[in-house]
Amino acid sequence: MKILYFAWLRERLNRGEEEVSLPPGVATVGDLIDWLASRDEAAELAFAKRSLIKAAVDAKLVNHSAPIAGASVVALFPPMTGG
């Protein structure tokens, strides 16, 4: 599964994308964030405020309870500031 990061989340994690193999039990976007945050200290800090992390599964905006089984691309990013 490919994970994309944008804006300050990308900077704090020092990567724009990565391929991951999910461990068993990671079923939702929220589970994915918990697992990514547990991998190292930088990630723990970057994901510290869960309410600031928005997500899209296969280019569709979703909330943290959305399932990720079968998804090709999950994007994680801060609140959007376009316009």
Binding site: F77, P78, M80, G82, G83
Partner: peptide, 14 residues
Amino acid sequence: LMDYLKTDAPFWKQ
């Protein structure tokens, strides 16, 4: 359109 795209379109300003 403007009100929705400010918060719901994936752009980030620096």
